Amino acid sequence: MASRAGSTGIDASLYRREGQWCTALVDVSLGTTAAQEAIDALPGHIGKLLGSQQATDTDIAALTQALLPADGHASPVARFVAVNNGEVVLDEVIDGLKVESADVDCGPFPNLVALARARGGQFPYLVAEASRDGGEVGLYHSAVKGVGESRDVTGDRDEAHHARKVPGPYDEPKNQANTEEIWRRNAEELAKQIEELARENHVKLIVLAGDIKARELVAGRLGAACKTITSVLDQHTRTGGADQNAFAAAVQERVDEVLGRDVQELSERVANRSGNGRAELALGFDEVVTALQQAQAGTVLVSQYQDDETLMALDAEPWLTGEDSTDHTELVIGSWPAPEVLLRATALTDAAIRYVPDGVLPEGVGIAALLRWPNTTEPAT
């Protein structure tokens, strides 16, 4: 999906689709005979679980057919599949997630909590490799293995070769100027592709490598918004002897730096809003529910998953209410574990959600929200 659950936001359109949803989070690791046998038995096992939850035959068929092993991925690895009215809407492989037993759910809206937890804080980024005769830019996601989209820029090799020919000493400046003009055009085209991919995918990082002259030309043609998120690697990757493992490690280091800065910034924002009567920060389960009901929560921060709480989901604003509430009874569609209802309300109020490590929230607080506007009265103590 365009906006991954649990990254900087959630695709609210998923919750607006009508009809029944079925989701499954399963282990699809390979590498041993037992793992292969488990994969072979998986469709039948999941089909029975779906049937016990009154899933339709169409939904069962669509979901079980998507339960493919994750070839080329190191164990552990999981697959998350969501089906709506017989259509596979989400099918994502999650590296590094160990699933002890299959988690299967059917209901009027998708249960995206497992995906959101696994994807929390992850982001899209670009890797651009420049050379004098062109280059390549790839779109990646920090939580997904492999390139999502790539674009090549290939200059005219014959033109470049002709430009570099030097018939005599008096022609050398002219030919050098022609060669550099070709390099500039290639750099402009690669910069254009970087700008387009960055804008379309809301990337948070651009890693630029390649020939030193070419990457300088490309960097100089990027707009201000892209320059601020560009990290230049002093590596010429488009040569036969390039160390691709070292290059991949250097890119991952830049990705980890962004993830670390993001958590640090969230921690600082929470600390900064904890004073002055805490007017711009909701702390604890009840305050966060109230903020979501008022569409006041800008970013919901979860460090403990509130699995022991339940909430009522509503089919219109304010989207959720407490189990014991007598308000909005005409809108109630059912009761579910709090993490599912909170995630849905977060999406439907255009807020973001982050699953954060210990230390970001005050001690003893499992959930909080950074508010879009301050409370007019101080929270109860």
Rank of each mutant, 00 (worst) to 15 (best):
E180L: 11
E180N: 04
E181M: 13
E181C: 08
E181V: 15
E181Q: 15
I182G: 05
I182S: 02
W183T: 05
W183F: 09
W183N: 04
R184E: 15
R184D: 15
R184S: 11
N186M: 01
N186G: 13
A187Y: 06
A187T: 10
A187L: 05
E189G: 07
E189V: 14
E189C: 13
L190R: 08
L190T: 07
L190K: 04
A191R: 00
A191N: 12
A191L: 05
A191S: 01
A191M: 08
K192W: 11
K192N: 14
Q193F: 04
Q193T: 11
I194M: 09
I194K: 01
E195M: 04
E195R: 02
E195Y: 06
E195T: 15
E196F: 12
E196S: 08
E196L: 03
E196K: 14
L197Q: 13
L197V: 08
L197G: 07
A198E: 00
A198D: 11
A198V: 03
R199W: 04
R199E: 12
E200R: 08
E200W: 06
E200A: 11
N201Q: 06
N201T: 10
H202A: 14
H202R: 08
H202F: 13
H202E: 15
V203K: 08
V203T: 04
V203Y: 14
K204I: 05
K204Q: 11
K204G: 11
L205R: 07
L205H: 05
I206W: 04
I206A: 02
I206P: 02
I206R: 02
I206V: 15
I206F: 09
V207P: 00
V207L: 01
V207R: 07
L208C: 00
L208N: 03
L208P: 10
L208Q: 07
A209Y: 05
A209W: 12
A209L: 04
A209T: 10
G210I: 10
G210E: 09
G210P: 04
D211L: 01
D211C: 01
D211E: 06
I212S: 14
I212K: 12
I212P: 04
I212G: 08
I212W: 12
K213W: 10
K213H: 14
A214G: 05
A214L: 07
A214I: 11
E216Q: 12
E216C: 03
L217E: 02
L217G: 07
L217P: 02
V218Y: 08
V218M: 00
V218P: 00
V218G: 02
A219H: 15
A219E: 12
G220Y: 11
R221I: 01
R221D: 09
R221L: 08
L222S: 01
L222I: 02
L222A: 07
G223W: 09
G223Q: 12
C226G: 13
C226E: 06
C226R: 03
C226H: 14
C226V: 01
K227A: 06
T228V: 15
T230D: 01
T230Q: 06
S231M: 07
S231V: 15
V232S: 09
V232K: 10
V232W: 01
V232G: 00
L233N: 15
L233Y: 08
D234N: 13
D234G: 10
D234F: 02
D234V: 09
D234C: 00
D234W: 04
Q235F: 12
Q235K: 09
Q235V: 15
H236G: 03
H236I: 13
H236N: 14
H236D: 15
H236E: 14
T237R: 10
T237Y: 03
R238K: 06
R238V: 09
T239S: 06
T239H: 13
T239W: 07
